[in-house]
Design a protein around this nucleic acid. Structure first.
Length: 136
DNA sequence: GCCAACGTTGGC
DNA sequence: GCCAACGTTGGC
């Protein structure tokens, strides 16, 4: 199982809405590197749901339930989306400041490349953030 | 509100 | 095919 991090602006699509919806289509990605990450996702992969801008914290965990398929909101027909479902919220959101302050997390792909909206997470990073978020 | 990082566009 | 100009994202 691979792990990922999905970024969303709370004003565009918030964790609250994710929990309310239960499942959602992760559309709107228009960056090739992010799209390549979407294409690499397999059913059953897990991902952190991160609030960018307002919030700047990891809110919880979602799971890929449908692998990359065409994004109908893309006129060019080149970009894809995946479908995800809510798994569980963190008891305590993990902030960007905490991640940057942690020696084993400060080199995470999404910290180093802040504009990348879909990024890979290593098994070690996954474990640490889970324990910080008090899930298990 | 500012600015760094980075992607895209368009002139050559 | 290069690169300057410009736009966008996202942290501060």
């Amino acid at each position: 199982m691979a792990c990922w991090l999905l970024k969303s602006e709370p004003f565009a699509y918030s964790w609250t809405q994710m929990v309310r919806d239960g499942t959602t289509r992760w559309n709107g990605v228009r960056n090739h590197q992010a799209a390549n990450n979407l294409k690499a996702m397999k059913k059953g992969d897990k991902a952190f749901f991160y609030h960018s801008n307002e919030g700047k914290q990891v809110m919880g965990i979602v799971e890929v339930i449908k692998e990359a398929h065409p994004d109908p909101t893309d006129d060019t027909g080149k970009f894809v989306m995946v479908d995800v479902k809510t798994v569980k919220p963190f008891a305590r959101p993990v902030t960007l400041a905490e991640i940057k302050a942690h020696p084993d997390l400060r080199n995470m792909a999404f910290v180093r490349q802040s504009r990348l909206s879909v990024s890979p997470v290593t098994a070690g990073e996954w474990k640490i953030i889970n324990s910080l978020g008090k899930t298990r």
